[in-house]
Amino acid sequence: MKKFKFAIITLFSICCIVYVSSCAMVDGVQLLSEPPGAMVYLVPLYQFEKDTSIVSDDAKLAEFQVPEGLTPVITRALEKRYVVVFDLNGKKLTTRIDIIQGQMNQAKVVFK
């Protein structure tokens, strides 16, 4: 009985360890605005759907800020659908981007 328990626990542990799902970052995500110099935030679609007020709340947005700086900027991100928020001097514009490995990942807005 002890050996049986040991076998079950071992198998269970192996199954836990073996499942390593890889989430690889996608390089070369281009975020552009016209005129340049906008702050960019990449909000995953799921987070946006949960709380749509996130776009107007700077404190909540801070978590999703693109660390590489202002537009035009090239960053890396996980393969997700995002709501991209561009903030130029307090004026905000949003668009969506679907990041997929091996494809051209670009989002661009024009402030009028």
């Binding site: 799902s21 989430c23 995953p44 679609l45 799921y46 996980l78 393969e79 997700k80 659908r81 679907d98 990041i99 997929i100």
Partner: peptide
């Protein structure tokens, strides 16, 4: 399709 593969993997984790 809707959320992207990494969003789904993260949620599963």
């Amino acid at each position: 399709e809707k959320y992207g593969i990494d969003a789904v993997k993260e949620a599963i984790h």
